[in-house]
Simulated assay, not measured.
Amino acid sequence: MLGLWDFTHISVTQNNLQELKEMDKHLFRALTQYWNPTYSCFTFGKVDLVPSVEEYTTLHRCPRIQADKVYSRAANILTFLKKLMIITGMSKQWVTTQIKQKGDSKCISWKCLQDLIMAHPNTKKKVDVFSLSIYELVIFPKALGHIDEAVSDLFNQLGKRVMPVPIIWAKTFRSLNACRRVGEEKFIGCAQLLLAWFYSHF
Rank of each mutant, 00 (worst) to 15 (best):
I108L: 01
Q18P: 05
L31T: 02
I65W: 05
H146G: 05
T79N: 08
F7G: 04
W197C: 00
F130P: 00
Y56Q: 14
I108S: 01
V165D: 08
T172K: 00
K82T: 00
F130L: 08
S152T: 15
L132R: 11
F44R: 06
Q18L: 14
V70W: 08
L17F: 13
K46V: 05
K125R: 14
P141D: 07
T88Y: 02
N156Q: 14
D24I: 01
F202V: 00
P166E: 05
A74R: 13
R174D: 01
C41D: 04
I87N: 03
D115F: 08
K126M: 04
I87A: 03
I86R: 15
S40F: 00
D6R: 10
L154F: 06
L27W: 02
E149R: 07
H60Q: 12
D68K: 15
L31E: 01
L84F: 05
H201P: 00
F173W: 14
F187Q: 01
F202N: 11
L194I: 00
P37E: 02
D115Y: 04
K111R: 00
T13V: 05
K126Y: 01
T96L: 11
M85E: 06
Y39V: 04
M90I: 01
L81H: 09
A150H: 09
V182H: 14
K111T: 06
F7C: 02
G103S: 06
V47F: 03
Q101I: 10
